[in-house]
Design a binder for these strands. Structure first.
Ligand code: MG
Ligand code: MG
Length: 1198
DNA sequence: ATGGTAGGCTAGATGA
DNA sequence: TCATCTAGCCTAC
């Protein structure tokens, strides 16, 4: 192992691996050299007692001793652990103290608040004598065996643990409280409410529980093994997260998850180090040997032995001195044209400790080498068929000699083959979930944000396959530190002490103490999942920066992997970098902002808005000034703490409400990726994993990941010829690469007869199946070589009897699973809980199937296939046109259609007839296709069709008991867009509901006019809540990155907002602003102000004229465009605007359009669809039909 | 860093 | 002055 470590350290010049990560690499490499030295130390001293065993690492940041404080050096009483003395002496380094925190432990609650840091001491160096590099560690604590906890904290990082050695024992101390938990759950089985919060947090927490301890030991003969279905002894391990460090520990993947330990009757965290994952190359032989200089092919045919020989030479040149090889037959179906569909490859395997081959190596005897840069993680997940979190069975588990993780249990596997996915997938283990909410303040001197408070809630028994728990959490804690420039209120400690029953508060003297406490808590509670809001955009980066700036020891406790050096962190405006994202490995991170972005549409995704929209609860946002102010009095400070706790609760509840975790689990199990990545969003990666698994299974060589495409700057890469000269900004918005869906020209106007909406069920996934569109079934060579590359005509569709390709098969699996789930859901005796779970699964299946097409057209996808994407949309256009033609041939009136839908004006007012007609059309259309299916998606009682993608309709619903209800469906109109103010949208909504109401034209027009006058008056009177004036727009770039910031109001507002310090607005944030009168004569865009500015500056007033003329008027005028009896000018007049400017507005288009359907609302017109009122003569022997033509005038015909 | 295209609309720039 | 273009947003599929 030393040899390999040394050999690897020689690899320093290999920095070419990734130019972008130079700084990261340097940092990591530096660490490698240093820590490998430590490793040596450690091992040569084996045999020494534990306390003296680990040498001090002179390079570790952790040498910095924690400031002495009474709290921090108080020995922890509960650390008195019974241990086998004999083991102590023989192999002390194998001991591991395992503390399983009680789910309901009240370790803190019985102590005075200022003394709750007991856990810290196990995390902190005990004294300053640590300073001499050659010195071994000593302790000041009497009970020295407990010190072994600290030993592995140092010098662990690059231990290449010799797996052939037999680590003997792992001692475990466990604070078990399983029974207590159950008791506690029962007691606290109540919904949290605001009242409870204000009464005290302990009401839902852990009151009156006591801690119990149980000691148990784990060693190789004592691992919690079980017998699997084939009778083998295996360790059952549920994997949740995976991590690899390809630079330091190539060939090693760390799996993190849980193991059930019977002796303590609970699941404990476990880190599995999978070693010796080999690199695998697939070398494609040339048919004939080629001279690489002249590119001339010789007549000599190549053989695999010749390839082997040449590769051996090349390998040696790259210092790969050992490898194995064999002949394999593999398929290929991707974008490199020269690669045959099927061929014999030379598969080469070699240790990942040897260098990576450049991905473009070529030889005289071979043309391509695949898999040069494939990660160990990919090899592991694909070869072991690990598709998302699952129970694994681990054979030959070994206990490591040195601790590498912060987990309760550690296992080493000498090779990946020891892993198999269990055929007995029982429920996933319960997770420990912890929320995290930070309060920060900018340091007035450095202007950098510092952390002043943190609040956490903990749920110790979260089930990923169940609906949200009734009790949101069991434990809570807060930690507060005073800002560097202030002091605590004089009576703060007293006040806090009074509150101990309500809230568990830890007071620390400064940020460093806070961070130390937080890390210790994370270690102790050992959460599997940390939840926050904007963690990836703010908290994580900040946390790591502050830990680093304060030189807080054991930074890596934030994760589950012990590491000495923090990844290089750069100034990144709060946005977490790649390195930072991997800093928390082993614990999944759930950022509810990211999740909400994926799952729901929201005006904004900040915490207040999410709380309002998702939880229907109001949250108050705290200004930095307010936070600072709150440090001046104890009462205020307590309020701050409570507010922070409340935010934490919001975060947790938002996650529950959106079912983020159950959904992510389902998606991950479907796609076969890593769950922590699913939680980070990004559809493409999920799709890639799904396809990787599928193609790997079918013996395909997959496209390699391409790194750093050198920013080719292909401005005119498409020979489109159009004026593409000015391709603004990095990737502002690229122009489309191929044609998409067809949108039929709408027959605009108002309809008061039933409209049928027919819609193909998931059109694109269906097309892929219907036409068997796949990498494997369609040759793209013509399309990519020909000049007309966006012409899908040259693609040849596969025969109908050709076996389905990989892509259609995968989609079919998804669709079939979904059907199955849906039939299960129809079963009446499913529990509510089960139903929720089914629904989540079917949603996940649908999402995955639908994102398949998108990823085909995604330029940076590993499976990018523009011709296929274009073919799919092409077929879609064809199908929509066919459908339209068919429907028109049935003598029906197609008024609109978008991509996969057709709207038909039935001209009927009989609902039954309409459905009958719909079903007839449906069956006619469906006759044309094998799988593709159109369905009735809705029936509209009335509809206002304004433009392509813009309409409003009254949707009819028939309940089983025959009752008919209606609901509004609004699509694309201004009133559903967030960039119009509520004032305008509300007016618009009123107008729409009037138009759809079915009343006579005269009434409608009159009501609209009246309403507008009223609105105009109210606006001018100023008696309107400010929020109605908010216009919100998202920043798509960071404000400073806009080339033309001057004319963009939201950018200007954001720039001013950012300039005042504190939290910054960044790309993705939503900026609210109000157009104001500020005395200047500048254009409206120059007079946009943030609501705070308007409130604070008396000189600013809402520009009511702007809102009437540029918000309400255009919105309303567009809606009323097809309505006769009013016009733009009239509407303007009602609003109190000068109508002259609106006289003959933009009707230059309409004049040509004769098919404009106008609102026909005279009495006669309105009832034109009514049948005549007829009835049979009631006289038994008469039977004549009597017709009442004019009910009120009395004309009767017989 | 990382699904897609189609389309409406505003405000500002540009040119006849 | 008007027509035409572009950037930027947000929406419908
Ligand atoms: Mg559809
Ligand atoms: Mg549709």
């Amino acid at each position: 192992m030393f040899a390999s470590a040394a050999a690897f350290s020689k690899k320093k010049p290999e920095a070419s691996v990734s130019l972008a990560n130079d700084d990261i690499l340097d940092g990591l490499m530096g660490e490698l050299h240093k820590s490998s030295k430590v490793t040596k130390h450690t091992d040569t001293k084996s045999g020494q007692p534990a306390a003296k065993k680990v040498a001090y690492n002179p390079f570790s940041v952790e040498r910095n001793s924690f400031p002495r404080s009474e709290e921090s050096i108080t020995p922890k009483a509960s650390l008195t652990v019974k241990r086998g003395l004999s083991y102590d002496k023989v192999k002390p380094q194998t001991q591991k103290n395992l503390t399983v925190s009680s789910p309901v432990s009240r370790t803190y609650s019985e102590r005075s608040v200022s003394n709750v840091t007991v856990e810290q001491d196990e995390d902190l160096p005990e004294n300053e004598e640590f300073n001499n590099g050659s010195q071994t560690m000593e302790t000041t604590v009497e009970d020295s065996p407990t010190e072994s906890i600290d030993l592995a904290d140092i010098g662990f990082d690059d231990d290449m643990v010799d797996t052939s050695s037999k680590p003997e024992e792992l001692e475990v101390k466990h604070d078990v409280v399983h029974d207590n938990l159950q008791m506690d759950t029962k007691k606290c089985n109540q919904l949290i409410s605001e009242e409870i919060l204000t009464l005290g947090w302990e009401n839902v927490g852990n009151n009156g529980q006591s801690e119990t301890h149980m000691d148990f030991t784990v060693d190789n003969s004592n691992l919690p093994l079980v017998t699997n279905s084939t009778g083998e002894q295996v360790l059952r391990f549920y994997w949740l997260d995976a991590y690899e460090d390809p630079y330091h520990q190539p060939g090693t993947v760390f799996l993190f998850g849980k193991v059930f330990v019977d002796s303590v009757k609970s699941h404990v965290s476990c880190c599995v180090t999978v070693k010796n994952i080999e690199r695998r190359l697939f070398i494609l032989p040339r048919v004939k040997r080629m001279n690489l200089k002249t590119h001339v092919e010789s007549t000599e045919e190549t053989t695999l032995p010749m390839v082997y020989e040449e590769f051996q030479r090349i390998a040696e040149k790259h210092r790969i001195n050992e490898f194995r090889s064999m002949k394999v037959r593999k398929n290929y179906a991707f974008e490199i044209l020269e690669v045959p569909v099927e061929a014999d490859y030379l598969e080469v395997r070699y240790s990942a400790e040897h260098p990576v081959l450049p991905s473009d190596v070529k030889g005289e005897t071979f043309s391509h080498v695949f898999g040069t840069n494939t990660s160990s993680l990919e090899h592991l997940l694909l070869n072991r068929r690990m598709k998302g979190p699952a129970w694994l069975e681990l054979k030959c588990p070994q206990v490591p000699a040195t601790e590498t993780s912060w987990c309760k249990l550690e296992i080493i596997l000498a090779k990946p083959d020891y892993i198999s996915v269990s055929d007995n997938q029982s429920s996933p283990p319960p997770l420990v979930v912890m929320t995290l909410k930070l309060q920060t303040l900018p340091n007035p001197k450095t202007r950098q944000n510092e952390i002043v408070a943190a609040a956490c809630l903990v749920h110790c028994d979260f089930q990923m396959d169940r609906p949200a728990p009734k009790q949101p959490y069991q434990q809570h804690f807060c930690v507060i530190s005073k800002p560097s420039d202030s002091i605590y209120p004089f009576d703060f400690r007293d006040q806090i002490t009074k509150q101990t029953k309500r809230m568990k508060i830890e007071i620390t003297p400064g940020e460093r103490g806070l961070l130390g406490f937080l890390l210790a808590k994370i270690h102790k509670l050992d959460p599997d999942l940390i939840v926050g809001h904007d963690i990836y955009g703010f908290d994580l980066d900040l946390l790591l920066h502050r830990i680093s700036a304060n030189k807080v020891p054991h930074w890596s406790k934030i994760s589950r992997l012990k590491r000495t050096f923090m990844p290089k962190i750069v100034q990144s405006h709060g946005k977490a970098t790649f390195a930072e994202k991997s800093a928390v490995c082993g614990r999944m991170l759930c950022d509810v902002q990211i999740s909400a972005r994926e799952l729901i549409r929201c005006r904004s995704y900040d915490l207040s808005e999410l709380a309002k929209q998702v939880l229907k609860q109001e949250r108050t946002e705290l200004d930095y000034d307010e936070v600072r102010e709150m440090f001046s009095s104890s009462l205020q400070l307590l309020k701050l703490i409570e507010q922070t706790l409340l935010d934490s609760l919001f975060i947790l509840n938002i996650m529950y409400e959106l079912s983020v975790v159950p959904l992510a689990l389902q998606i991950t199990n479907i796609c076969g990726n890593v769950m922590s990545r699913t939680l980070m969003g990004g559809r493409s990666e999920r799709n890639e994993w799904l396809l990787l698994h599928a193609f790997h299974e079918k013996q395909y060589v997959c496209p390699d990941k391409e790194f750093r495409k050198k920013q080719v700057l292909p401005v005119g890469d498409d020979e489109d010829g159009d004026q593409s000269g000015s391709k603004k900004m990095a990737q502002g918005k690229r122009k489309p690469a191929y044609a998409g869906g067809l949108v039929l020209e709408p027959k605009k106007g108002f309809y008061d007869t039933y409209i049928l909406l027919l819609d193909f069920n998931s059109l694109y996934p269906s097309i892929i199946q219907e036409y068997n569109i796949c990498f494997t079934t369609i040759s793209r060579s013509a399309a990519t070589t020909e000049v007309h590359d966006d012409d899908e005509a040259c693609l040849i569709l596969p025969d109908h009897d050709l076996e389905p390709g990989v892509l259609p098969t995968e989609i079919r699996k998804l669709v079939d699973s979904r059907k199955l789930v849906k039939t299960l859901m129809k079963n009446s005796d499913v529990s509510h809980e089960q139903m929720m779970q089914y629904d989540i699964r079917q949603k996940a299946l649908k999402l995955t199937a639908n994102s398949m097409y998108g990823c085909l057209g995604f330029t940076f996808s590993r499976f990018y296939a523009k011709p296929l994407a274009a073919l799919v949309t092409g077929k879609g256009r064809e199908i929509l046109m066919q459908t339209k033609d068919l429907v028109q041939k049935m003598n029906l009136d197609v008024i609109y259609g978008d991509t996969d839908s057709i709207m038909i004006n039935t001209n009927s007012v009989e609902l039954d007839q309409v459905y009958k007609l719909g079903n007839k059309v449906k069956s006619e259309v469906n006759k044309l296709y094998r799988l593709l299916e159109i369905d009735i998606d809705g029936v509209f009682k009335s509809m206002l069709l304004l433009k392509k993608k813009k309409y409003a309709a009254l949707c009819v619903h028939r309940s089983p008991d025959g009752q008919v209800t209606t609901s509004q469906e609004l699509k694309g109109l201004d009133i559903v867009r967030r960039d119009w103010c509520d004032l305008a949208k509300d007016a618009g909504k009123y107008v729409v509901s009037q138009i759809l109401s079915g009343e006579t034209r005269e009434t409608i027009v009159e009501k609209i006019h009246t309403k507008l006058q009223e609105v105009g008056d109210t606006v001018r009177s100023g008696d309107i809540p400010l929020t109605l004036f908010y216009i919100t727009k998202q920043l798509t770039k960071n404000p400073e990155d806009y080339p033309d910031k001057k004319s963009l109001p939201h950018v200007q507002v954001a720039m001013r907002f950012n300039s005042k310090g504190g939290k910054k607005m960044r790309a993705g944030d939503t900026v609210p602003y109000i157009i104001c009168e500020d005395g200047s004569t500048m254009s409206a865009t120059q007079r946009a102000y943030h609501p705070d500015e308007l409130i604070k500056q008396d000189s600013l007033k809402v520009d009511t004229k702007y809102y009437l003329a540029h918000q309400i008027h255009p919105v309303v005028a567009r809606l009323c465009d097809p309505i006769q009896g009013t016009d733009s000018a009239h509407l303007a007049e009602c609003l109190g605007l000068d109508p002259s400017g609106y006289r003959h507005t933009t009707h230059h288009e309409e004049t040509a359009e004769e098919d404009l359907v106008t609102l026909q609302l005279t009495m006669e017109e309105k009832f034109r669809h009514c049948d005549r009122f007829t009835f049979s003569c009631p006289s038994p022997n008469c039977g004549r039909q009597i017709v009442l033509d004019s009910v009120f005038t009395g004309n009767v015909s017989i």
